[in-house]
Amino acid sequence: MAEVYRLRADPEHTAPAVPLAEYQPGGTAVWLEAGDDARLLVPHLGALRRIDIAFPKFREGRGYSSARILREAGFTGEIRAVGVLYVDQLMFLTRAGFDAVLPETPIDPAVAEQTLKRFPFVYMKATDAVQPVWELRERA
């Protein structure tokens, strides 16, 4: 594994993430497999500081729903994508609610910055604060 690419300013919460099945109430870091039900964590979001979500394959897409569900439920801690991920997926990841990525191959921060600036507008609401074009059109 390469280094974690983080988009948060707060200090990294380094507690080891425990698998969902072993998670005890009060635990601050948990690990979700791709197929785990993120909604099971909703009662514990106040205690949690970091949620790691596994991407065992590039094709794996369930984690995007998991992250979005957690943000929709009000989670403000770190959601970290871990696994087979590339810089070109950063926009999807960040808009779905991830704010840290631990990829198998390292992400060049310069390329990442460029990638995240690539699309000036988006068409749909997601978990970030970016206004979709229909809101911009409405305002104009």
Partner: peptide, 14 residues
């Protein structure tokens, strides 16, 4: 079309 373009959650479906 617009809604589905670069959708953050639904670009890696089964």
């Amino acid at each position: 079309r617009q809604w589905s373009t670069l959708h953050p959650e639904f670009s890696f479906l089964p």
